[in-house]
Design a protein around this nucleic acid. Structure first.
Length: 477
RNA sequence: GGCGCCGUAGCCAAGUGGUAAGGCAGAGGUCUGCAAAACCUCGAUUCGUCGGUUCGAUUCCGACCGGCGCCUCCA
């Protein structure tokens, strides 16, 4: 592996900084996953897709990535949703967990090495709370819940620059206010109430029967997993959506460092939102689409991936059908180029102009992605390459194994934006072949009227015809 | 109110203190029986507005206008 050249914006310092893993080539990566109270929407998946690109680029760069993703299966929303559905917590969340994995696969997001559902880590969470109580940074409130005392953690607020903030006048005051020492203290462990018990969301603990606060799980699970795998207490990268900076990640830092005395995560990276006409996509606004909605509409995951990668992860991206269709066209073009390259002759590869373009592409893509994961820049150089290489092929240049290799490396392995292969349909295909043969008969006898009629009919079936010097090609659109 | 983000061609969207990537759409051309695909050519004298700094700003600073996000359980 070459020297680590990847730089990423670090929310902790608000600067783009070189990634410096604790023990290269290993990189521990923790990404905040979905709350499985419902289907995740594509705004959620935008974050997961940016994390997927990060993961893939790290691996392509030679790092040995250990990727952990949590599944929040016990919190206010899951409990409420389970209650409304008249189910137990596990009965309610299990199908949504399954759905999340299906959607992940549809969008070609590489599975994490470990998925950690909160309910499966109860002992670790209880241990963490115990440790925080022992260290005196947590206390039991008058209401029987356990809170983190932020005044015992001097650097609290560093990530979100809280010291520069003022709390909004008249801001919402929690109902548990009276129980806490400081209004900003947050719950580590919430005393079980009747609703929690009703859905089976309550566990026994030395400090009382209850359930974990939302933030607790990420600290307990990430620390537990990296201790198990790597014997460390510090994550190399912690990633998530920008909305998690405060309070979620701030609180994770407090809990984790309060317990270990070690830095929790060296590099914090956050992705921007997916918007719809300028407004954040969310369940609350009702302006959301799920991955399965797209799949049912026949949208190729490759188009979604390209669309998202054409905007930098730290910029908001606006989602609409036109943009998605445009990305679909881009995917088609790159795909046609690959087909063409595969069919080209690869004689005298090293001297060809194509080989030179390929080396240039590799250098440009690498530079772009190393620069704070600038995927839009990387995609731009890819299209530059496609055009220049097509020009070479038009001029009768030979192909290049190098070109295919670099295309596979970046467009397939890193970006993964080639169209999903269609399921073959023997009956349809032989019918199309017969039509194409009939049309070519007609063309041969200069009966262009008949030939055009066949082409028109094929087009109504979504089949596009392309006459080339080496024969007629067709494709289903 | 505090903190933060954004405003670049019809649409999506990079980027830089030295004069604007890329994609989609559109127009013309090469090729083709005609198409399609591919390629070639064409588009912002200009980067929300107004000031300031500078030899020079879209890029830095300030104000303003417009849009958005977070501010205790939202990716």
């Amino acid at each position: 592996m070459s020297a680590a050249p990847l730089s990423l914006f670090n929310t902790l310092t608000r600067r783009v900084e070189p990634l410096v893993p604790l023990a290269p080539p290993r990189v521990t990566l923790y990404t905040c996953g979905p709350t499985v109270w419902n289907f995740a929407h594509i705004g959620n998946f935008r974050t997961f897709l940016f994390e997927d690109l990060l993961r893939r680029w790290l691996e392509q760069s030679g790092y040995d990535v250990f990727h952990i993703m949590n599944l929040t299966d016990v919190d206010d929303r899951t409990i409420k949703a389970a209650r409304q559905a008249g189910k137990s917590l596990v009965d309610h969340t299990a199908p949504f967990t399954k759905a999340f994995f299906e959607d992940r696969d549809y969008l070609r997001i590489k599975p994490a090495h470990v998925y950690t559902p909160a309910t499966a880590y109860m002992p670790q969470m209880i241990d963490l709370v115990t440790k925080l109580l022992e260290r005196g940074v947590a206390y039991e409130g008058d209401d029987g819940s356990v809170y983190f005392a932020i005044n015992r953690f001097p650097t609290y607020g560093r990530l979100s620059q809280l010291d520069k903030r003022e709390i909004k006048v008249g801001a919402r005051v929690a109902s548990d206010e009276y129980a806490k020492g400081d209004p900003s203290d947050f719950a580590l462990w919430k005393k079980a109430d009747a609703e929690d018990e009703a859905v089976g969301a309550a566990w026994d603990a030395p400090f009382g029967r209850g359930r974990p606060g939302w933030h607790l799980e990420c600290s307990a699970m990430s620390l537990s997993e990296i201790a198990k795998c790597c014997g460390v207490q510090t994550l190399d990268i912690h990633a998530g959506g920008i909305d998690l900076i405060f309070p979620h990640h701030e609180n994770e830092i407090a809990q984790s460092e309060g317990a270990t005395g070690q830095q929790f995560a060296r590099h914090w990276v956050h992705g921007e939102f997916l918007n719809v006409r300028g407004t954040k996509m969310s369940k609350r606004h009702g302006n959301f689409l799920t991955a399965r909605d797209l799949r049912e509409q026949g949208v190729d995951a490759a188009a979604v991936r390209l669309l998202f990668f054409q905007t930098h992860y730290r910029q908001p991206v606006d989602f609409n059908d036109d943009a998605l269709a445009a990305a679909g066209e881009g995917v088609r073009r790159i795909s046609e180029f690959r087909n063409r390259l595969e069919q080209a002759s690869h004689a005298k590869p090293d001297q060809s102009a194509l080989a030179e373009l390929s080396r240039q592409l590799r250098a440009d893509m690498t530079e772009a992605l190393n620069n704070d994961l600038n995927a839009p820049q990387a995609v731009a150089t890819l299209f530059d390459f496609v055009r220049a290489a097509n020009r070479e092929l038009d001029q009768g240049s030979g192909g290049s194994a190098e070109a295919l290799a670099v295309l596979t490396e970046f467009a397939a392995r890193v970006l993964d934006i080639f169209p999903t292969p269609r399921k073959s349909d023997q009956a349809l295909e032989s019918w199309i072949e017969a039509q194409v043969a009939a049309r070519n008969q007609a063309r041969k006898s200069k009966d262009f009227k008949a030939a055009d009629a066949i082409r028109a009919e094929l087009r109504t079936k979504g089949v596009e015809i392309e006459d080339t010097p080496t024969g007629t090609k067709w494709r289903v659109v």
